[in-house]
Design a protein around this nucleic acid. Structure first.
Lengths: 333, 333
DNA sequence: CATCGTTGATACAACGTTGTAAAGGTCTGC
DNA sequence: GCAGACCTTTACAACGTTGTATCAACGATG
């Protein structure tokens, strides 16, 4: 509870001199510096960040806006963003949108422009051009969907290519009826992964069958299980499934097991996100592994640059990914 | 970017009158109120929370201090705390401690006393009495370990009883060599769950064998797998395992599967936390299900009360739990 | 010795908000 | 017509911090 004033009184100097010591100003007489530092210790002074930021015009916080923390991918990402933000001495406010258009609108609109220095947003329903209106003047870095033509900073992997690689892996295994789970009418990433899926099939000379593309309105385990159940109930069930995230894959694996369908013997399964859960599930999941550390770092760094210079041209960063092959496509599960 | 001053100029009234309108003060002439509201709209005024809080002595934020967001239990809990905090118009700053003593000390010490109104802390290594020194003057609500005798607000389930119920379930299945995974030298919750384990064995007339109590220095999947591997390698392996959280259980199940040991036929497994992951794993996990919604709600409510009245006597709330029986002990997995 | 640049310390104002107190106005009841 | 009560608005100060300007002292330079 000690303020600069208290410390100054104790050290017998002016408030500003204490402020100078605290902020590492060079020209302070050694004698005074010593006394101030002593006073700082005995009072246990801690700067009032609210006041400091009011004066400096910064808040020292950043908002991380994402659908849901219960989704492991976002939980892992959030943890990494926290770490990266700490290096910039940023606190992180996390906001959940539930992935709905309304949730995302409300959240963005409610971000007091004075509460945060900027925001890292992982949108599901909203599109990049909505941001300008909803969060006017707030520096924003967008995660996920890649939309090069929009004037907003962006970090993400090449979703089309990642999906293509994943499905090509299933093709290499000799699978012929390859399904996709996760199509979605309004999600950019879903569209991109679907495109990669189609690309890989085309490259392999395989037809794209509508009945093998399963929609998922959410990307939870339940939705994966439901979609897999529908696929397996079909006349000619698939011999492989590409799921647009690991949760869908986990649900799909479970639905298969409940019907006595073996993974990967009868159906090979590939996920997306490389969550830890997938590495330990039975069978363990083959999955697309985005470099989450790189994503978190890049997002925070980009936000820092944007905050420091609002006029700089927007950047579109592509972070690397890899395909992690595990039991769900390898056969020894 | 508009301030009260701008709005006041536009409406032709004083700054304070605008402030009064914004804060719902009753005695404002209808005519003036109308003009101010109009000016508020055209300027798009949003209060500067930093300044407001500086003046009011509140920050509008609360810190949620937990080990790691990658641990699903904490991710789920964090999401629920976010929801509960929103109802109190609190923003939530999340801090990760990694569960180490140093991490927890550093985090608590670094919580600027001015950054937050209070903190909800889920400690692993620290003990309640450390809090007073580390975060002097900060209202704190503690999650988890139950220590009735300490003067600090607390929310948690009855860990001893929950563990007893879980192990009693294994006893009821007729298991005789029941192991425990998750013993830890410095964790209060570990000690309590271990006590419940011993209690249940004693009630069943079963001996407590040291070689069946496996230590886990972390509570991740990896640690569960390692502990299970050690147990299975023993002379007389267990026919049931009680794991102190779901992650340990997932790791244990995997380690069993890799060695051809069937769950639950050869070894029944019980987890703790009722994470969604456990509901979908193969086999699905029998687990202790704390009422996480109740925990999150109670913690936030308690913090609110503590902030409003720092002198009130500390409360120790016990939230309900249940045992969810699934395939990992039921036999049809 | 006068001048100048450097070093060191301080007073003051300002960031945007709200509590306090006080002042000006209107209304009531006698 | 006047005291008193009540409504309405405002000026001012303050929350804790830091940037700017100023001032004083010092040693070095010409």
């Amino acid at each position: 509870m000690a303020t600069l004033k208290d410390v100054a009184a104790l050290a017998g100097v002016s408030v500003k001199t204490v402020s100078n010591v605290v902020n590492g100003y060079a020209f302070v007489k050694p004698e005074n510096r010593r006394r101030v530092e002593e006073a700082l210790l005995t009072t246990g002074y801690r700067p009032n960040l609210g006041a400091r930021n009011l004066r400096r015009g910064r808040t020292g916080s950043l908002a991380l806006v994402l659908p849901e923390l219960v989704v492991p991918y976002f939980a892992e990402l959030a943890g990494l963003v926290l770490d990266a933000a700490q290096e910039h001495e940023w606190n992180v406010l996390i906001e959940q949108t539930l992935g709905t258009r309304e949730g995302e609108r409300d959240t963005l609109a409610s971000l007091g422009p004075h509460m945060i220095d900027g925001a890292i947003v992982s949108p599901e329903a909203l599109e990049a051009r909505d941001f300008g209106e909803l969060a006017p003047g707030i520096p924003v870095v967008m995660l996920g969907e890649h939309s090069v033509d929009l004037p907003i900073d962006h970090v993400g992997i090449d979703n089309v290519e990642a999906a293509r690689v994943a499905v090509a892996h299933l093709v290499d295994l000799g699978r012929k009826r390859i399904a996709a789970i996760g199509a979605h009418p309004h999600r950019g990433t879903a569209a991109q992964r679907l495109e990669g899926y189609r690309l890989a099939l085309a490259e392999a000379g395989l037809p794209v069958r509508d009945e093998l593309v399963a929609t998922a309105l959410n990307y939870h385990r339940r939705d994966g299980a439901g979609a897999m159940a529908r696929l397996l109930a079909a006349h000619e069930p698939p011999d492989a499934v590409f799921c647009f995230n690991d949760l869908l894959a986990v649900g799909a694996v479970r639905a298969a097991a409940e019907r006595g369908v073996r993974v990967p013997a009868d159906v090979a399964v590939v996920g997306f996100d490389n969550t830890e859960e997938g590495a330990y599930s039975l069978p363990s999941l083959t999955t697309v592994a985005p470099d989450k550390v790189a994503i978190a770092r890049a997002a925070v760094d980009l936000l820092r640059k944007r905050v420091d210079d609002p006029e700089r041209p927007p950047e579109h960063l592509r972070t690397p990914f890899s395909l992690v092959v595990r039991e769900s496509t390898r056969g020894d599960g």
